[in-house]
Computed example of a mutant assay.
Amino acid sequence: MTDRAPLSILDLSPFGAGSTPAQGLRDTIALARTAERLGYRRYWLAEHHLNPGVAGAAPHVLLAAVAAATERIRIGTSATIIGNYSALQVVEAAGVVAALHPGRFDLGIGRSGSTTQPTGRASEPAPPQARVVDGLLLPAARPFAFDAVRFAAQARLLRRTAGDADRFEQDVLDILALIEGSYVAPEGVPIHATPAEGQPIEVWLHGSTAGPSAELAGRLGLPFGANYHVAGSFVLDAVDAYRRAFRPGVLDAPHVIVSADVLVADTAADAERVGRGYAEWVHSIRAGQGAIAYPRPEDALVEPFEPDLLDAVGDRLDTRFVGDPDHVSERLETLQRVTRADELLVTTITHDPADRARSYELLAAAWGLGSPAERALATAVRA
């Protein structure tokens, strides 16, 4: 086994049934402190809008509070959905936090929206079937339908426009130029984005397929985030596309972080119990209503699930790493080996925030993060 990759955390600011959005935000800040103490490298926030059980709608605002509550851990977004903003808005928001907490900000950028560009294909390829590559499950792609009316309302509220994804590459180039201080407007006017200009903001691109994000990240020599926990079917394609396209730029060599959904408890039975509710939680997203408040374990459905539910969420259940610390560590080692990831990004969703914190603590000890004293404490509590 090669050396274990650094671990980082992706947090959505979820909250459980009976809790509140405000508590979910406070839990995020508390968890960031825990992550720093345990030795995680980065603490990244996601951007999700209009989800009844997720408070992480404005990551750039929340990151200011996370940065103020921590001292060393890198903080950032995974990912800022660029179509929801102008390039200048993104840079200025990142710049405020980066100026107050220099040397710690990671600006992750994700592409979304519609495009007017032709695909060049006569027809869409068939969804990939499930396969196992050197011990790593790549699940069958499971198409699911968004609530078109709700999706259209969200797009209108965010001022999305038809074909807005066509601007992705130019937006990324503008962001890089504004941070560097080399941006010149089409009118020929030099523009200086205070206080972001000159800040050591680390720009990442994130993608779920072998599409424009992977290719652009490679071509610009940027680090790339690949998505196993939501789009496991395509993770190897995305990483391979990035590496094929890579040219030295910001980086001299490719650098990949790969995400995974994990849940660790002292025993496998404890992990299965704490993890109940995940099927309903994922189904709420894929059914179009947005992520619900995570169900209480005692109220959640238990296996065997109905065939319709399994058909909608089975890929997420199959790629969630659930169990005791040794089992989850083994599965993460496989993910690292097969994807050749330089870093791993783990995310954990539970009803009780204490169970989330405990999962990260046990994983950190098993993976070898932090100080010997921290690892010994986690092991002692486990025993």
Rank of each mutant, 00 (worst) to 15 (best):
V256F: 00
E298Y: 01
D311T: 13
I257M: 12
P372Y: 00
G314S: 09
E361F: 02
W367Y: 03
G370C: 06
S329E: 12
D311H: 11
D270V: 03
P372I: 04
W281A: 10
R358P: 07
E272P: 00
Q336R: 12
D308M: 01
R356M: 09
L332Q: 04
H255S: 08
V274S: 01
R316G: 10
A365Q: 11
E343Q: 11
D318T: 10
E361I: 10
D270I: 00
S284A: 14
A364V: 12
F321W: 00
P325D: 05
P295G: 09
A260T: 12
G290Q: 06
D308I: 02
V346D: 08
V313L: 06
E330P: 00
G288R: 04
G288L: 03
R358S: 09
L310I: 12
A365K: 11
D342R: 07
R340G: 10
L344R: 08
D299M: 09
V274C: 01
V256G: 02
A373W: 07
F305Q: 08
R337A: 15
P353T: 11
A354N: 09
V338Q: 02
T350V: 13
T334V: 15
P372A: 04
D352W: 07
G314A: 09
V258H: 05
T334A: 05
E333S: 14
R356S: 08
L363A: 02
R356A: 09
E361C: 06
D326L: 14
V264G: 03
F305P: 12
R320W: 01
L335K: 05
A271S: 01
T347D: 06
T348N: 13
L362Q: 14
Y278D: 14
H255K: 06
L335M: 08
S284L: 03
V264K: 03
V346Q: 08
D355P: 06
W367T: 11
L362G: 12
A271M: 00
R273L: 07
G288T: 10
I257G: 04
I292D: 12
A271C: 02
E330T: 12
V338D: 00
H283R: 13
L263F: 11
R337N: 10
V313R: 03
F321V: 05
L363G: 05
T319D: 05
G275Q: 07
A312T: 13
R320E: 12
D266M: 00
V322Q: 01
